[in-house]
């Protein structure tokens, strides 16, 4: 049984797709090329109707030396969750902000920036959101995060 959303995705985003699979009922995971992220995101919103970005995060694949940026999209019409992934190198990670496309990316990209140290380019207000303003203990959600650094950052 083929999923119509999957078929549409395969057709519209044909060239940028690296990986496309179904995670469960009404849940699709798609990996696109990092260079095509902005374009793919725009197509997903405008042509595919994924109008909500519920969250965004990252996964630190330290062995593969990549960060996987994960955007959790949802379509209010198709009632489908789409997990949009992009792989970027672990050295000097940068990514384009999707704030222009999905406004709700605001908080999640700030969190991504402070938790993983991923430079989100084009974000209007890239400031700390969860960590203390004077935090200097590194990036907590990276796999090589030094816990002692975190402790030291709290000993003012």
């Amino acid at each position: 049984m083929s999923n119509p959303v999957m078929d549409d995705l395969r057709r519209i985003l044909s060239e940028s797709i690296l990986d496309l699979r179904e995670l469960g009922k009404r849940k699709i995971s798609i990996t696109v090329k990092a260079d095509n992220l902005l374009e793919a995101a725009r197509i997903l919103k405008e042509k595919m109707g994924f109008d909500v970005l519920t969250s965004a995060g990252a996964i630190d694949y330290i062995a593969k030396k990549i960060f996987q940026i994960v955007y959790y999209l949802w379509s209010s019409k198709r009632r489908t969750v789409l997990i949009l992934r992009v792989n970027i190198p672990r050295e000097n990670p940068t990514i384009q902000s999707l704030h222009r496309i999905w406004e709700s990316a605001d908080y999640h990209e700030r969190e991504m920036w402070e938790m993983f140290g991923i430079d989100v380019q084009g974000h209007p207000n890239l400031t700390r959101i969860l960590l203390p303003e004077d935090w200097s203990g590194g990036f907590p959600l990276r796999k090589d995060f030094d816990w002692r650094g975190g402790d030291a950052a709290f000993q003012h």
Binding site: S55, I59, V70, D106, Y107
Partner: peptide, 12 residues
């Protein structure tokens, strides 16, 4: 584990 919190969405 990534937790997409509803409160954070509402606060935005």
């Amino acid at each position: 584990v990534k937790i997409n919190s509803p409160s954070l969405r509402n606060l935005y």
